[in-house]
Amino acid sequence: MDVFMKGLSKAKEGVVAAAEKTKQGVAEAAGKTKEGVLYVGSKTKEGVVHGVATVAEKTKEQVTNVGGAVVTGVTAVAQKTVEGAGSIAAATGFVKKDQLGKNEEGAPQEGILEDMPVDPDNEAYEMPSEEGYQDYEPEA
Score class of each variant (00 low, 15 high):
35 E>W: 15
139 E>I: 08
73 G>S: 12
59 T>D: 01
132 G>L: 05
121 D>E: 02
128 P>I: 09
127 M>W: 04
109 Q>C: 12
79 Q>S: 06
138 P>Q: 06
38 L>F: 10
50 H>D: 06
42 S>V: 11
20 E>K: 02
105 E>L: 04
101 G>F: 03
128 P>Q: 15
78 A>R: 08
79 Q>V: 10
115 D>L: 02
10 K>G: 01
88 I>K: 03
33 T>H: 03
127 M>D: 03
21 K>I: 12
132 G>I: 13
88 I>A: 03
90 A>H: 14
81 T>D: 04
69 A>T: 01
51 G>D: 02
124 A>V: 09
15 V>I: 08
28 E>Q: 01
76 A>K: 12
103 N>V: 14
21 K>A: 14
13 E>I: 05
39 Y>F: 11
65 N>T: 11
107 A>D: 11
129 S>V: 05
9 S>D: 08
87 S>Y: 06
40 V>T: 01
26 V>I: 11
89 A>M: 07
12 K>W: 05
76 A>P: 01
2 D>Y: 04
104 E>T: 07
55 V>D: 01
85 A>G: 13
27 A>F: 11
56 A>C: 11
107 A>E: 05
11 A>D: 00
107 A>W: 15
123 E>S: 03
20 E>R: 02
123 E>W: 11
21 K>P: 00
91 A>D: 06
47 G>Q: 13
84 G>V: 12
35 E>C: 12
52 V>T: 01
132 G>V: 10
34 K>A: 14
56 A>I: 08
78 A>M: 07
117 P>T: 12
40 V>E: 00
52 V>M: 15
108 P>Y: 05
26 V>P: 00
44 T>G: 08
91 A>F: 07
90 A>D: 01
83 E>N: 07
28 E>R: 03
135 D>S: 07
80 K>P: 04
20 E>F: 09
23 K>T: 05
8 L>T: 00
14 G>R: 01
108 P>R: 13
101 G>Y: 03
58 K>H: 14
138 P>W: 09
64 T>Q: 08
96 K>I: 13
127 M>K: 12
27 A>G: 03
116 M>K: 02
65 N>R: 08
139 E>N: 13
52 V>R: 02
64 T>I: 09
89 A>S: 11
43 K>Q: 09
72 T>F: 15
27 A>K: 07
83 E>L: 04
28 E>S: 15
19 A>N: 00
27 A>T: 07
37 V>D: 00
98 D>A: 04
20 E>Y: 11
128 P>D: 15
118 V>K: 10
55 V>F: 13
11 A>N: 00
73 G>D: 05
91 A>C: 12
106 G>V: 07
8 L>P: 01
133 Y>G: 13
23 K>I: 07
75 T>G: 07
65 N>I: 04
23 K>M: 11
120 P>M: 10
61 E>F: 04
53 A>Q: 02
12 K>C: 15
109 Q>K: 06
26 V>N: 00
90 A>C: 01
78 A>N: 05
61 E>D: 01
106 G>L: 14
138 P>M: 11
114 E>R: 14
16 V>F: 12
33 T>E: 00
67 G>F: 12
7 G>N: 05
44 T>W: 15
140 A>D: 11
16 V>G: 08
21 K>C: 02
72 T>H: 05
98 D>Q: 11
64 T>M: 03
36 G>F: 06
138 P>G: 07
118 V>A: 13
71 V>K: 09
